[in-house]
Amino acid sequence: MIDIAGWAPEPEETTEVVGAGPSEALAGLLDVEPPGEELPPLWHWLHFLERPAQRDLGPDGHPREGRFLPPIPERRRMFAGGRFRIHDPLRAGDAVTRRTELASTAVKRGRSGEMLFVTVRHRFLRDGTEIAVEEQDLVYRSGGAASRPEPPRFEAPAVDAPWTLSTTADPVMLFRFSALTYNAHRIHYDEAYATGVEGHAGLVVHGPLLAILCLELPRRAGLKVRELSFRARRPVHAGQPFVAAGSPDGTLSIHAPGDATAMTATFA
């Protein structure tokens, strides 16, 4: 049974000068031109990175301990979604302070047993003024070896929408995105671990990468996004063709093989 009684981490604060290099690198990954001075929504995920020592990592590649990592045994982490509100964009050259706090926790029971839902809130400030607020929803569960995964499907989804962006993430793309976000979770690069230990059907495409691809649709259409919300519904695996679809009405989604919706999102 998941027990986090007494877990109440104190807020923390870090300040960073936003460099242009990470955005240029992500633009290369996406085969687009660098965005210029303003960071597109969610591209701040390439900044304020944690860089733990190798000895501090657990068997899954994540840190064993951390201020906002819940104290539960055999912890496994999943990206569930989040929200982002922008008052003024982050810009290259800005000195930005990120204040992080635990926003909420909830224990729920799913098909695989008990799960701990954790929401972490980040407030971004420039010269003492709040310019953006982000909430990240993460799911943690405890457990032993995973069950045998179902074989993945590879048929390209058929999607009819005003905006579409078709992608197939190969291991090279996943490696590069892991490097840009300093994400050492083995489900993104160690197929034997992803399938044999965590029960996935292959290497897992990062949830944040799917969210960024959703937001590429209004960005490429020339729209300014001030608020967004997204929810991960099921994983997409390396080699599976998927489609980011959207509409000017503010709806976005990721469609995977088998007529599956992997992520839904809204923007304004």
Rank of each mutant, 00 (worst) to 15 (best):
Ile2Asn: 01
Ala5Phe: 03
Trp7Pro: 03
Ala8Asp: 11
Pro11Val: 10
Glu13Asp: 11
Glu13Ser: 15
Thr15Asp: 09
Thr15Pro: 01
Thr15Phe: 00
Val18Ser: 07
Gly21Asn: 07
Ala27Gly: 06
Gly28Arg: 11
Leu29Val: 08
Leu30Gln: 05
Leu30Asn: 05
Gly36Gln: 02
Glu37Cys: 04
Glu37Thr: 13
Pro40Glu: 02
Pro41Phe: 06
Phe48Thr: 04
Phe48Cys: 03
Glu50Val: 08
Ala53Lys: 08
Arg55Ser: 15
Arg55Pro: 04
Asp60Val: 04
His62Tyr: 12
His62Asp: 13
Glu65Asp: 14
Arg67Tyr: 12
Pro73Val: 03
Arg75Glu: 00
Arg75Asn: 01
Arg77Phe: 10
Met78Gly: 01
Phe79Asp: 12
Arg83Tyr: 09
Arg83Thr: 15
Phe84Tyr: 15
Arg85Leu: 06
Arg85Val: 10
Ile86Glu: 02
Asp94His: 04
Ala95Gln: 14
Ala95Leu: 08
Glu101Asn: 09
Leu102His: 01
Ala103Phe: 03
Ala106Thr: 15
Lys108Val: 08
Lys108Tyr: 10
Ser112Pro: 11
Ser112Leu: 14
Gly113Thr: 05
Met115Leu: 14
Val118Cys: 09
Thr119Asp: 08
Val120Lys: 02
Val120Ser: 07
Arg121Trp: 00
Phe124Gln: 01
Leu125Thr: 14
Leu125Glu: 13
Thr129Ser: 12
Ala132Pro: 07
Glu134Trp: 01
Glu134Phe: 00
Glu135Thr: 04
Asp137Val: 14
Tyr140Pro: 11
Arg141Gln: 09
Gly143Phe: 08
Arg148Gln: 13
Arg153Cys: 05
Ala158Pro: 02
Ala158Arg: 06
Val159Arg: 05
Ala161His: 09
Ala161Met: 08
Ala161Gly: 13
Trp163Met: 07
Thr164Trp: 00
Thr164Phe: 02
Asp170Gln: 12
Asp170Glu: 14
Val172Lys: 10
Phe175Asn: 07
Phe175Tyr: 05
Arg176Trp: 01
Arg176Met: 06
Ala179Glu: 10
Leu180Phe: 03
Thr181Ala: 01
Asn183Cys: 11
Asn183Met: 10
Ala184Pro: 13
His185Phe: 13
Arg186Ile: 15
His188Asp: 11
His188Ala: 10
Ala192Trp: 06
Thr195Ser: 06
Thr195Cys: 11
Gly199Met: 01
Gly202Arg: 02
Val204Arg: 00
Val205Thr: 05
Ile212Ala: 12
Arg220Phe: 07
Leu223Val: 07
Val236Lys: 00
Gln240Asp: 02
Ala244Lys: 01
Ser247Val: 11
Asp249Phe: 13
Gly250Asp: 03
Thr251Arg: 15
His255Arg: 15
Gly258Cys: 09
Gly258Arg: 14
Asp259Gly: 14
Thr264Glu: 08
Thr264Ile: 12
Ala268Glu: 09
